[in-house]
């Protein structure tokens, strides 16, 4: 029996879809059977981040409305045999799926998969309620900005009100240079404010844009620092203890020298 994990944030554009794609691919690379569900109806994106947009035939709403069998709608990943995507519907409206539909779907999928990752849309309306309906664990993605942290705090409260306790935090797009000069909140600041446990820290990394251009998650690139962070997060999700690597905080040799010399 697998686990259903929702990736949520409140605020849009903080990295939920990026995290779902990379964490899912990372878990599959570790040998797990993984399915990713895109619940962002009308704003489908996980398919392009995964590079699977040309293979879509059926979608989430086709499944919940009985137009096809669940198996038929699952798209197999190009790289891993154990990795699948259930894409969001692009044309139907958000009310096409109910929380009961999602519970049933998640229960069915976790019979077969080790991990069911649910990519949540922005906001706290029906799409959010659907995304969390079948989940037993939650990962909250935030960036080191006031608006994103505020929304993350609200999500912590709403998850708790819905019986989803102990969500863990992923801090995305941290910039060590800005943290260093006091112009960006650091990890401790955010953990202190939100009072939840940390799952991982992903640095700002140009390679995320490059990988999205190509449709190949950064987690597979051994040179990407964000990719390394996601490989660590994938291990932590499986229960392995992995300390925060220096890389996640690396300021670069040149800057370190400059700082030591007081320049």
């Amino acid at each position: 029996m697998g686990e259903v994990i929702v990736i949520t944030s409140g605020k849009g554009g903080v990295g939920k879809t990026t995290t779902t794609a990379n964490l899912g691919t990372g878990l599959a690379a570790l040998g797990n059977k993984v399915v990713l569900i895109d619940t962002d109806i009308g704003l489908r994106n996980l398919d392009v981040v995964m590079g699977l947009e040309n293979r879509i035939v059926y979608d989430l709403v086709d499944v919940t409305q009985g137009h096809c069998r669940l198996r038929q709608a699952l798209i197999k990943d190009k790289r891993f045999d154990g990795l699948f995507l259930l894409p969001a519907a692009q044309t139907k409206d958000k009310t096409a799926v109910s929380t009961d539909d999602m519970k049933k779907l998640c229960n069915e999928l976790k019979e077969e998969f080790d991990y069911v990752l649910v990519d949540c849309p922005a906001g706290i309306e029906q799409g959010f309620k659907n995304a969390i309906a079948g989940a037993e664990r939650a990962l909250i993605v935030t960036t080191p900005e006031v608006s994103a942290v505020r929304d993350a705090d609200r999500i912590v409260g709403l998850l708790e009100a819905n019986g989803l306790r102990g969500p863990k935090l992923i801090i995305n797009r941290i910039r060590p240079d800005m943290v260093k000069r006091g112009d960006m909140m650091n990890i401790e600041d955010m953990l202190d404010i939100l009072a939840i446990e940390l799952m991982g820290v992903v640095p700002e990394d140009e390679y995320i844009v490059v990988s999205t251009n190509k449709g190949e998650p950064a987690v597979l690139d051994m040179n990407s620092r964000a990719g390394q962070a996601y490989r660590n997060i994938a291990k932590r999700v499986t229960g392995e203890v992995v300390s925060l690597i220096n890389l996640e905080y690396d300021e670069g040799l040149l800057n370190k020298l400059k700082r030591l010399l007081g320049l």
Partner: peptide, 11 residues
């Protein structure tokens, strides 16, 4: 620092 302003406003 602007980070301290961020923390205070969030609080």
């Amino acid at each position: 620092s602007s980070k301290n302003m961020a923390k205070e406003r969030l609080r």
